[in-house]
Simulated scan of single mutants.
Amino acid sequence: MSDISANVCRAPDKEEGDGAPTLPRLARLPINRCNLPAAILGGLTYQRHPTPLQIDGVADLHKPLWALLDDIPEAPERAGRFAGYMQNHFRLQQPEDAGLAAGQAGARARATYLRVVRGWAFDAESREAAVLKGWVESRFGLCPRHHGEALREPGSRAWQRYVESRAQGLRGTNALEAQLDLLYAYSQYELARQFPLRSHLRLYRGVNRLAEHETIQHDAGGDKVLLLNNINSFSRSRERAGEFGDDLLAVDVPLPKLAFFSHLLPGMLRGEDEYVVIGGLYRVRLARF
């Protein structure tokens, strides 16, 4: 949970009607690949009143998978079937079938969705983390705010280093971002089955140097509005999250903004009760240890 966004952001625009801040323009793209624009899904109104997010084409393309999973009552068996579907659909064990010439199926061909997730968990500033941040940027239109250093201006040296790291992570891989698309869709499928009556989960994040985060607004009741990086690690365990920083943030996260979580697939993430959260604006509260 070391990935932070430093410094205070410029004053944002206001949402019409309630005076709440909106997602700053430099933190979003004008287009994305899902059913809601970044200005909406990255805002506070969405945090309060979420609706499902769907990446373009994924649900329809993989209809046989959902039909298969619907008939399986137990989550561990569904996880096994999903992992098998990923291997077969993306030919993860036979990279030559995906177009690589015989003898060229090296380390880059083995850069699967699982390697990206584990690389992110090991180091939130790694090449795999750049791939994951780039995937969120492409699919949801939310720009990364930090990767090794603050990212504030597209085209800056810091931004170029991030783009280079992302490109290196994608080079020579087999539809890696499409693998992440399906991982997100499966995560949403499982969340709907495991929490059918929930719209949010209360999650926690331990942080250091809270004053350096992008604080958009201070509320009279002690809450803050923060602009988070476009993807972040949280925990459902207050105690576990408290091990990662001097301050503890409590956030009600909409289920559609959970990219994946530790219990989704066996061994995917090392941290107990870890949830990986798509960023944007969030109203947060300082929790007590």
Rank of each mutant, 00 (worst) to 15 (best):
A83M: 06
L249C: 02
L68N: 13
E137A: 14
W135T: 02
L41Q: 04
F261G: 11
T51W: 06
L269K: 10
V284L: 02
G280T: 05
V131P: 04
A130F: 00
R33Y: 00
L142P: 05
F244E: 07
F122K: 15
A175Y: 13
Q104D: 13
V277W: 03
D18K: 09
K133V: 08
L29V: 04
E96Y: 11
R110P: 00
Q47V: 06
G43F: 05
L44N: 04
R166K: 10
T173F: 00
Q93N: 15
Y204Q: 03
T22W: 03
A20E: 15
D13M: 07
N230E: 00
K63W: 12
A105S: 14
G57I: 04
Q194K: 04
P50K: 02
G141E: 08
A20V: 05
N32Q: 09
A124P: 12
L151V: 03
L265W: 08
Q47M: 08
A59T: 13
Q217V: 13
G155T: 03
L269P: 01
I55S: 04
N35C: 01
T51V: 15
A250D: 11
G80K: 13
R25V: 11
A178T: 10
A175T: 05
E77K: 14
D246I: 11
E190L: 11
E212Q: 15
A167K: 12
S187N: 03
P37G: 12
N88K: 12
P196R: 03
G43V: 09
G148Q: 05
N230S: 10
V284N: 00
L92E: 10
R33G: 07
G242E: 09
G43C: 09
A192T: 02
L44F: 07
R78P: 13
E96G: 00
T51K: 12
A27H: 07
L132H: 00
I231A: 06
W120G: 08
H213Y: 15
L68M: 15
N35W: 06
Q194T: 07
F195T: 09
D3N: 13
A130P: 01
R145M: 05
C34W: 04
G19N: 03
L29D: 12
R157V: 15
L248I: 08
A175C: 13
R81E: 11
V116R: 01
E149Y: 00
R283C: 05
R48T: 09
L201W: 10
L203H: 06
Q168F: 00
